[in-house]
Design a protein around this nucleic acid. Structure first.
Lengths: 224, 224
DNA sequence: GTGACTTTGTGCGCGCCTTCACAAGGACGT
DNA sequence: ACGTCCTTGTGAAGGCGCGCACAAAGTCAC
């Protein structure tokens, strides 16, 4: 069928990465009682450029009305649907250190279509301890959680154990992983891994900061 | 002169984003006592593709030896220099909620050329409380920190106060910001903002997970 | 009903990034 | 000293995403 190839297929990765931002802006508009927005409104709210907004949204279908704009609630639903947020996704967090606890306590998950169904750690001393209303469980409980619909694993362990934890997640069938550990994870191609790394981000900032500091500093450093 | 335009200028953003990964791999090789690596070795360690590795490194200069590879320590230094990590950068964290505390306690900063020089919060009840060995200070202390060399600000506040905090950072002269709050920040063009957002990452994973789940699930959902 | 106005959806050109493929260059054994 | 082998560095091609600019389309006022 050539009529629907873009309905769900072939949404560019760059567009997918922006859809959550549009969705957030739309929820904000909706909360303010605004029923309709133009691509320019969305552009201002997200800092993206109105042409890009329109092109991104066109990949989902033609949900705008020419001369008027987009219906806020309807567009929000369409984006949610495209992202697969029309039902809840079960998430497990592995690694109950400082970061893992902060993630467990983060309220942004529940409101966005994600539900934390398990907190896991390899340290037996933590088992049974309650964090953010959920008990910390041993890694052996993973298989059971997958049976209950677990789809996404979050790795918040130290770098040393990240690959081990990753292997366990993959072996029980988890195919989507969000990795906070500063390591590159080896996985089968069918598994999607996204990585968030604090020091990488800071290093990129340092590069730009250094460029802004200008030639003077660089030269002084070279001559020393 | 056409010989030096790429010495420090014009390193592509995509390359800059990968340099920290190479650097981490090189440190790992160095720890293992490996003195020389090929682009293929680096490719395997970072999952990047050897041709891309070579092209990325060529933007920094010709630091490889044909037939042999790259000297691990020398290349690590060159990357550090290009990223501006040959001296320490002073970092302040604003917002001492769960996430802010986890960031403050994160040990990855110090070892990578960053030093936390201040923890700030708008809540007066937190002032003086010690987190990770540093006292929580009021926002008014920002100006003083800039005088002591503060270059990078990390925003770990709720979304509501993020823009306010950002404005304060910018007004005292901070030009590099790492934003963990789920909001788009408005800043002058001279300020570089990088954003890390947990729910955005999860939503992108959800999209891919949904695609992998295949047509069956989608159709079932539509018919319901 | 008609005209003017507003905003969407998109065709096209441009520039950046990736990938391939190979010549240039250097080490090492004999 | 010389040939072989290995790995770098890079030219060129292809693909992807961005932004402009405009035609299509629908609303609103009168």
């Amino acid at each position: 069928m050539s009529a629907d190839p873009s309905t769900r297929r072939g949404i560019p990765d760059a567009t997918v990465a922006r859809l959550p931002e549009y969705l957030r802006a739309l929820h904000s508009f909706s909360d303010d009682g605004i029923a309709s927005v133009s691509s320019e409104d969305l552009a201002v709210a997200t800092g993206v450029g109105s042409a890009k907004v329109r092109k991104d949204l066109s990949y989902l279908g033609s949900y705008g009305i020419r001369g008027v704009g987009y219906d806020v609630d309807h567009l929000a639903y369409q984006i949610s649907f495209a992202l697969g947020l029309t039902h809840e996704w079960a998430v497990a967090i592995v690694g109950m250190g400082n970061l893992g606890r902060a993630l467990a306590a983060y309220r942004g998950f529940a409101t966005k279509g994600f539900r934390i169904v398990g907190l896991l750690d390899q340290d037996t001393r933590l088992h049974g301890q309650v964090v953010a209303g959920l008990p910390v469980r041993p890694m052996a409980d993973l298989a059971g959680l997958v049976g209950e619909g677990l789809a996404i694993g979050v790795i918040a362990t130290p770098a040393e154990s990240a690959q081990d934890v990753c292997d366990q997640l993959v072996s029980v069938g988890v195919r989507s992983i969000l990795n906070f550990a500063p390591t590159v994870l080896a996985t089968p191609p069918s598994v999607v891994v996204r990585k968030v790394d604090l020091s990488t981000e800071l290093q990129i900032l340092a590069f730009h900061e250094q460029r802004k500091a200008g030639r003077a500093v660089t030269l002084a450093e070279v001559s020393s």
